[in-house]
């Protein structure tokens, strides 16, 4: 991993971390939802600080370059996050629909 990439990763992670904390304080993000992002940013910081370990793992796993392993991890993380979000939207959608029906039946004269 190049030094530039490591610095970018650290800066972005710290920013993500700070943004999360701020949103939680403003009560715009639930603590439960913030946990995954805080853990994610920690993992990124660890990866950029201990780049030797990342290189060792990526060689063992057969990646052509350590940076590929970093991207692979990030993409995997994002995919899982999107999927979880998607499920949540479905659940919310269903709840709103039921509310919709409930109100309609209540207002029926």
């Amino acid at each position: 991993m190049t030094l530039t990439l490591r610095i970018i990763l650290i800066v972005v992670s710290v920013l993500t971390f700070l943004l999360c904390i701020r949103r939680v304080k403003q009560a715009k993000l639930q603590i439960i939802d913030s946990v995954i992002w805080i853990i994610g940013s920690f993992v990124l910081i660890l990866m950029s600080v201990f780049s030797n370990a990342v290189e060792w793992i990526s060689v063992k796993l057969g990646f052509l370059a350590p940076v590929n392993f970093v991207f692979f991890t990030i993409i995997g993380f994002l995919l899982i996050e999107t999927f979880i979000t998607n499920i949540r939207i479905s659940v919310l959608n269903e709840k709103i629909k039921n509310l919709n029906h409930y109100i309609s039946l209540k207002e029926y004269k």
């Binding site: 709103i96 629909k97 919709n100 109100i103 309609s104 039946l105 207002e107």
Partner: peptide, 23 residues
């Protein structure tokens, strides 16, 4: 008639009718 406060599509409208029928 029943009036739904939010537009939710045909399936929801039919389901609403079913709920009314059950009630």
């Amino acid at each position: 008639y029943l009036s739904l406060p939010v537009n939710y599509g045909l399936s929801s409208a039919i389901q609403m009718g079913m709920k009314y029928a059950k009630k």
